[in-house]
Amino acid sequence: MCGRYSLSKSKIELEERFQAEMLGDFNPRYNIAPSQLVPVITSDSPKGFSFFYWGLTPEFAKNKPVSINFINARAETVHQKVSFKSAFKQRRCLVPADCFFEWKRVGKKTKIPYRFALENDEAFAFAGIWEEYENEKGENNHTFLILTTQPNSVIGEIHDRMPVILKKEDEKKWLDTYSSEETLLDLLQAYNPELMISHTVSPLVNSVHNDSPAIIRKTSPMDQFGNYTLFG
């Protein structure tokens, strides 16, 4: 499960990192949540950023709102599931990010938020798939989800799944419309744990209404109520 991430880089930094143009302004985001409109790079338009809603509306579910039930899909079966296999074959995307969050359960009522990032805190891309659908007003909307896989040793202590972080050199393969299914599935692996870092963050991340640099700062372990805890 990946239900919250951040993209705290500037527009210029993102354009340079992904070699893609972003039309309009972009404000760094520290607490991105499902149903929100965020930048992605699609196989249809790999030289530019598009803004899609996080929460896939499957191809067969026309005229439906953004679905928070479909924010992730398992990488192991995405090519087989009716809901996702068409998008996997034809509509793949990069989801730019610079960290994601998971919560460690340490008791019946205690969960502690953790931030996971690359060791140099650089931007990276999740592997995603996307859909286009027509809403009730006749407008075309675009939605996406993030693929997940078995966790590496860094995330495995906190959660039993992790988002697929693509290696930089594999991003073009993921977007390439000519990549074979075998090639694509081979890309969907857990990221090297030696290249990742993690630390506890403030329970401010628990609310989607909070979106500030304080979200990603390292803090002493606190539970979801803001109480300091010995668990880390």
Rank of each mutant, 00 (worst) to 15 (best):
K111C: 00
I112W: 14
K111G: 00
A87L: 02
K85W: 02
L37K: 15
V38R: 02
E59K: 11
Q90H: 14
G55S: 04
Q90R: 15
P46I: 06
A61G: 01
A33Y: 13
A97T: 11
F101T: 13
V40D: 07
K89R: 10
G107E: 01
A75S: 15
P113V: 11
L118A: 05
F70D: 09
H79F: 00
F116P: 13
F100K: 13
A75D: 12
S45A: 14
Q90S: 13
E119P: 06
K85C: 01
F49Q: 06
K81L: 04
P113T: 13
S43R: 13
T57V: 15
G107D: 11
K62F: 00
S35H: 09
Y53W: 03
R105H: 10
L94C: 07
T42M: 09
P46R: 07
S86T: 13
K108I: 02
T110W: 10
V95D: 07
P96M: 06
N120M: 04
F84C: 13
V40I: 15
T42N: 09
G107T: 06
V106C: 04
D98P: 01
Q80R: 06
S43K: 12
A87G: 01
L94N: 06
K81F: 00
S50A: 14
T57H: 07
R91G: 03
L37D: 08
F100Y: 15
V106T: 11
K62P: 00
H79T: 01
F52M: 05
V82Q: 14
S43D: 12
L118D: 03
R92S: 08
R92M: 12
F84E: 15
S86F: 03
D44P: 01
C99H: 04
T77Q: 03
D98E: 11
S43G: 07
F84L: 10
K85L: 01
V95C: 04
S43I: 12
D98N: 15
V40L: 04
R115I: 12
T77G: 03
F101C: 09
K64R: 12
K89Y: 00
V78F: 07
A75L: 07
R74T: 02
I71M: 05
G55K: 02
A97S: 14
Q36D: 07
F101G: 10
A75R: 14
K111H: 11
D44F: 14
L118H: 10
K89N: 04
P39L: 09
W103F: 09
S86I: 02
E59L: 05
K64N: 10
W103E: 08
W54G: 04
D44H: 11
L56K: 03
R74W: 03
S45C: 10
T77V: 12
F49G: 05
T110I: 15
F101E: 14
S86M: 04
S35P: 00
